[in-house]
């Protein structure tokens, strides 16, 4: 039950984009087409899950025993960068089809703040390994959910008549504001 609560609150109530404002760059950047939003979303889920588990292991099996907790920022960002490179190389070698749909988004993920945020958040909240896994899947699934909804709205928005100054990103932020109102209704869920 506790894990379900954790999952729902990270997925909907504390949604990483609409409530924490993390991962705004890809949210604005890769949301003009539904197909790219899905590709980016799946790639983010995979990278966040892998990077969180690896960071968790590095923190509790190497940094804590040695008393080097202050190194976590440097170590985590390097670990994320290495993991992204490794995944990209692995996909390039083994699955051209997967590379076509997911691989091309991987270079954008190294500097995606959501990945570093989840890795750090798992440590600050003192989650154990199972909770870390659930939390990282929930956060990244929340990211993909909002990204996909947003992309469908923006595809319609592209065909509508928007005042000159609001074209492009400004009107997209207004849409995000309305989505944030909708998601604030989840607050009483858990």
């Amino acid at each position: 039950m506790n894990l379900l609560t954790l999952f729902l609150s990270a997925l909907l109530i504390n949604n990483v984009i609409l409530s924490k404002f993390i991962g705004m760059c890809p949210f604005m950047g890769v949301s003009t087409k539904l197909s790219s939003a899905i590709g980016m979303g799946v790639a983010v889920i995979f990278v966040i899950f892998g990077a969180s588990v690896l960071s968790w292991a590095l923190y509790y099996y190497a940094l804590v025993p040695l008393g080097l907790e202050y190194m976590k920022l440097i170590c985590f960002i390097l670990l994320i960068a290495a993991f992204v490179q490794f995944v990209e190389m692995f996909i390039k070698k083994n699955s051209p089809a997967l590379y076509k749909s997911l691989g091309i988004y991987l270079p954008l993920i190294t500097t995606n703040c959501a990945v570093l945020y989840v890795a750090l958040d798992n440590i600050t909240q003192k989650y154990n390994l199972i909770e870390t896994m659930v939390n990282s899947i929930a956060v990244s699934a929340g990211f993909m959910l909002v990204l996909v909804i947003f992309a469908t709205i923006r595809e319609r928005l592209a065909a509508s008549d928007v005042p000159e100054a609001w074209k492009g990103n400004p009107i997209a932020f207004v849409v995000a504001a309305i989505m944030a109102i909708a998601f604030s209704a989840f607050a009483g869920l858990v």
Binding site: C25, P26, M28, G29, V30, T32, K100, I104
Partner: peptide, 9 residues
């Protein structure tokens, strides 16, 4: 020649 369709920053 595949490029991600990113217009974020």
């Amino acid at each position: 020649n595949l490029k991600p369709d990113c217009h974020g920053c």
